[in-house]
Amino acid sequence: MASYRCAVVIPTKNAMSVLPKVMDKVLSQHTPWPYQVIAIDSGSRDGTREYLRGLDRVQLIEIAAEDFGHGKTRNLGVAAADADFVAFLTHDAEPVDEHWLAGMVATAETDERIAGVFGRHTAYANASPFTKSDLDQHFRGFLQHPLTVYKDLDPDRYANDQGWRQLLHFYSDNNSLMRKSVWERFPYPDVEFAEDQLWARSIIEAGYWKAYAPDAAVYHSHDYSMVEQLRRAFDESRNFTRYFGYRLSPNIGQALTAMGKFTLQAWRQQLDPVYGKVTLKDRLERAGQRISLVAGHCLGANYEKLPVSLANRLSLDQRLFKS
């Protein structure tokens, strides 16, 4: 029998600019049971390891930078967890309140067939108005469907509707929780990208359920530069093509049309005032990000046609693994 109801696993790397606030929130969670906290650091050089060593309640696992893998490292954390459930955060995902962890576990406890739970992301206060709006719209979309989904909810739709399959396997280990007994049958795959969504697809196809916990929220957002956006979009598209057979923006003509559409939208789109004042700088950055997004998706969908050296230069994940 497990010693803890839940463990929280956080991979870290050079995280001192954000990690202390995250750990303060993680260590002050209000739960009716004790919980375990595990950090896995992969060669930090900015004081992250020393900081974590000083936290009495945190179990620190240290690995070499070259041993990191999105799925492999998280599997190491689950294996070390002496708990029924394992929640995941990234080192820049800060729980919004002290009830985050209890909410994740309570959602999983509603039915023993629930293998995984994902929670909502909300933008940091300093994020651009467009980033704030995008995140809200993305996660609001899940409220249009049952909060708990599974393959047999609509078998015909699962077989024939790619968008529905994408909805069912959406899962983000920036803010997630899994049932350890299911992980023992279905560990994370050791891949460069999308280990979380590949895992979700595997449990959905095995007949398990996946749940959304909208109140178990974290602050997590990025305002990417054009180059960062291009590289991230390239990795996303290339790996969706590899692993799921989805080609995001595969046609260059369609991609150019989409770039024009998104550029106009960046200049014309009116956001709810709750997201803050939209400046000229915001609109310029938005146009650049959207152009880079579509370009990255198009390049990634056609990665087989690119020289290997160019594909490696475009990939942010490859750079992270090499570093």
Rank of each mutant, 00 (worst) to 15 (best):
T279A: 13
Q269R: 08
A39K: 01
N175H: 07
S44P: 02
L27M: 12
W33E: 04
H121M: 11
S249T: 14
D84T: 08
V191Q: 01
D97F: 06
R185N: 14
R232A: 00
P146G: 03
A80D: 05
Y171M: 09
H91P: 03
A93M: 04
S128V: 05
D156I: 12
T90W: 14
S315P: 06
Y158H: 09
G207Y: 06
R283I: 07
S133G: 03
F170H: 08
D111V: 07
A206W: 09
K305Q: 15
P155L: 04
E192P: 05
F170S: 02
M23E: 03
L89C: 04
S221F: 08
G296N: 00
N126V: 07
N251A: 07
T12P: 01
W209Y: 15
D190F: 06
H99I: 06
C298I: 00
V22H: 01
N75Y: 01
Q197F: 01
Y124N: 10
A255Y: 07
G77I: 03
L314T: 11
T107W: 06
P273V: 06
Q29L: 06
A311I: 12
Y171F: 13
N302E: 04
S315C: 04
I204K: 08
P146M: 10
L60H: 12
R201T: 00
G116K: 07
F234G: 01
E50Y: 04
K277D: 12
R185V: 06
L101V: 09
R185I: 05
D56R: 14
Q162T: 13
F139Y: 15
Y219T: 01
R238L: 11
R5A: 11
R319A: 14
Y35M: 07
A258G: 11
K72I: 03
E62D: 12
K13S: 07
G260C: 01
Q269V: 02
G71D: 03
R5K: 15
P273Y: 06
P32Q: 05
L147P: 02
D41A: 08
Y4G: 04
E192D: 12
R247F: 05
V22W: 02
E195H: 09
R319W: 09
W33R: 02
R319M: 10
